[in-house]
Amino acid sequence: MAARTTTRLAIGYALAVAFIAAAPLFLDAYWLDVLNSVGLYVLLALSLNLILGDAGLFNMGHAAFYAVGAYTTAILSTRFQIPILWTLPASAVVAALFATLVARPVVHLRGDYLLVVTIGLGEIVRIALVNDVFGLTGGANGIFGIARPTVFGLKIRRPHEFLYLIWAFVAVTVLLFHRLEQSRFGRALNYLREDPVAAEGSGVNTARYRLLAFALGAAWAGMTGTLYAAKMTIISPESFGFWESVVLFLMVILGGSGSIPGVILGATLVVVLPEVFRGFASARMLVFGLVMMVMMVVRPQGLLAFRILRFKESDVRRAGASQ
């Protein structure tokens, strides 16, 4: 059973890679750009999934970390002419530090309480950006003139070039996050989600893992911010509002909280479906809302809730044999 799940997943990923690699052959620039959006949202949703899906911490201010990363890149690029991709680690570190700092006093809060606090956090960051904190963020207009990234001397500017850059980052992320969930670290996050009292009582430093979940999720959201800034060349506070956090939350819950393939699917559908139904004009959000409601009633565990057993039967057998 577990082996079959793994095989199916590998096939799914292989098909996705083939589709993305060949996409420039049959998709126009508009749809390639939609795919780029999908890639960015997949990254954001996966990073939120670490916090919300794996550790069970209700974070509805994830766009704040995304914003911190995007602005870090924008400021470093426009003021110090630092090449875009070199700002990736900076965005990760700044976003992680920011998350650790703001999460520390509130992270012990449970469920709905944490949700409310993180909504506040997201709004504070957005308003701070609008008000041009430290004279660095350019106020409501944002920052423009962000440089294009360069990979091995090749300047990335057209949609299909971004497609490969963004989706290469997605591929690495998916690989790393699968490794993460099948590890002591990933299990600790799951223990935290399932029962924090039992986790602490079993010897897991729950306070530390809560912060680590936030820090790591924020780091990835920050790096996604870098890619976003590079793609847009202009960023402004309105891209990082409350709605953005809500949509990310939705992608995780809709796709299958805690399931990497589920979250990828969730992000894809939430971005692509409104595009497909563009013909319905204003009715499309109505349809979308209805689909969500039906989904949650019919399939509350998410679309692809199947989880790869973190610990496979073969691991157990090997462990049994080595005694």
């Binding site: 002591r184 029962d195 009582g201 079993s202 010897g203 680590l212």
Partner: peptide
């Protein structure tokens, strides 16, 4: 108080957490 959605072996591994070290 078990970790309901996790397998039995994963539950027991929680006990091993404090005797092992590897991080993220």
């Amino acid at each position: 108080r078990l970790f309901q959605q996790l397998s039995a072996v994963e539950n027991v591994l929680a006990g091993r957490h404090c005797r092992t070290k590897s991080g993220a």
